[in-house]
Amino acid sequence: MNKIDVILGKIDDLERDLRGELRNVQNKFFYTVQERKVRFSADVKAAHREFAARWVDYVYDSGIWVILTLPFIWMPIVPALILDVTVWLYQLMCFPVYGIPRVKRRDYVVLDRHTLKYLNLIEKANCFYCSYFNGLIGFVREVGARTEQYWCPIRHARPVKSVHSRYRHFFQYGDAEGYRKGLAEVRETFHDTE
């Protein structure tokens, strides 16, 4: 195993640790997650309502420039919905043919902030949009990563800003022999996706 593989392994371990720590925050803020639904006690919900800003004040405090940019913020929702449907259809139709396990969209598109009582209606809508959009990008990236692992699992020669979850299975740039000998095996190395 070379140093790049060791570093990628450490990144995987750190991401796993981060997910665990994020789960531990539940105790600090008195909520539980049951069957993918967030639950607060009645007392905590009541306390949260005290922190909610009235939407009228929220809009007024935002200022005219923020309000004028809203159409530009919300414009990408239409292409995002189209992307969502096409990527979902792509993996539905193609992944079984290639033997690639499907990506669970619900693992990436997490819509739970609307249950927070300290957010007003506008903040909830904004949080819904951001959760959907960023979750969708994560979902699409994972579908793309699994596709790349099947079709072209070769690392780049130049450093990339951020590597996806499947990159550690890729061959070194320029490793022609390793690529030819190991391609069939790498195309089937999805045991760690579940």
Score class of each variant (00 low, 15 high):
residue 89 L to T: 09
residue 84 D to L: 08
residue 61 D to N: 09
residue 193 T to I: 07
residue 42 A to C: 01
residue 141 R to S: 15
residue 96 P to H: 05
residue 152 C to N: 12
residue 154 I to K: 01
residue 15 E to C: 00
residue 158 R to N: 14
residue 52 A to G: 03
residue 66 V to C: 11
residue 29 F to I: 14
residue 148 E to G: 04
residue 116 L to Y: 02
residue 124 K to R: 14
residue 146 R to A: 00
residue 174 G to M: 15
residue 11 I to M: 12
residue 103 V to E: 01
residue 1 M to D: 12
residue 177 E to L: 07
residue 28 K to C: 05
residue 114 H to C: 06
residue 29 F to G: 06
residue 123 E to S: 04
residue 18 L to M: 12
residue 78 V to T: 08
residue 130 C to D: 10
residue 190 F to E: 11
residue 113 R to A: 14
residue 98 Y to V: 07
residue 164 H to M: 14
residue 50 E to H: 02
residue 140 V to A: 10
residue 27 N to K: 02
residue 41 S to G: 12
residue 126 N to T: 05
residue 53 A to M: 08
residue 178 G to N: 10
residue 129 Y to Q: 13
residue 58 Y to N: 10
residue 2 N to L: 00
residue 11 I to C: 06
residue 173 Y to N: 13
residue 159 P to S: 08
residue 143 V to L: 12
residue 60 Y to E: 14
residue 87 V to M: 11
residue 140 V to Y: 01
residue 166 R to T: 09
residue 179 Y to R: 02
residue 121 L to F: 08
residue 187 R to Y: 05
residue 156 H to R: 15
residue 97 V to S: 06
residue 79 P to I: 09
residue 74 W to S: 10
residue 157 A to Q: 09
residue 43 D to C: 01
residue 28 K to M: 08
residue 156 H to K: 15
residue 23 R to M: 09
residue 132 Y to K: 08
residue 14 L to F: 00
residue 134 N to K: 06
residue 123 E to Y: 00
residue 119 L to Q: 09
residue 88 W to S: 11
residue 127 C to L: 12
residue 153 P to D: 14
residue 141 R to F: 10
residue 184 A to E: 13
residue 186 V to P: 02
residue 189 T to M: 15
residue 5 D to W: 00
residue 28 K to E: 14
residue 1 M to A: 12
residue 63 G to Y: 04
residue 12 D to G: 04
residue 101 P to T: 04
residue 160 V to C: 10
residue 161 K to D: 15
residue 134 N to T: 11
residue 3 K to P: 02
residue 166 R to V: 02
residue 143 V to E: 03
residue 9 G to L: 06
residue 76 P to N: 07
residue 2 N to C: 07
residue 164 H to T: 11
residue 110 V to D: 01
residue 39 R to A: 07
residue 178 G to Y: 04
residue 134 N to G: 07
residue 32 T to W: 00
residue 193 T to M: 14
residue 38 V to W: 01
residue 101 P to Y: 00
residue 64 I to G: 13
residue 99 G to M: 11
residue 181 K to C: 07
residue 94 C to S: 05
residue 78 V to I: 13
residue 170 F to I: 06
residue 88 W to T: 10
residue 179 Y to C: 03
residue 53 A to H: 02
residue 121 L to N: 07
residue 112 D to N: 02
residue 138 G to C: 10
residue 106 R to W: 07
residue 101 P to K: 00
residue 47 A to P: 02
residue 141 R to K: 09
residue 137 I to E: 15
residue 79 P to Y: 07
residue 115 T to Q: 06
residue 45 K to E: 15
residue 182 G to L: 04
residue 27 N to T: 08
residue 151 W to S: 15
residue 192 D to S: 10
residue 172 Q to L: 09
residue 86 T to A: 06
residue 170 F to Q: 01
residue 180 R to H: 13
residue 147 T to A: 14
residue 68 L to K: 03
residue 63 G to P: 05
residue 166 R to E: 15
residue 127 C to K: 07
residue 164 H to Q: 13
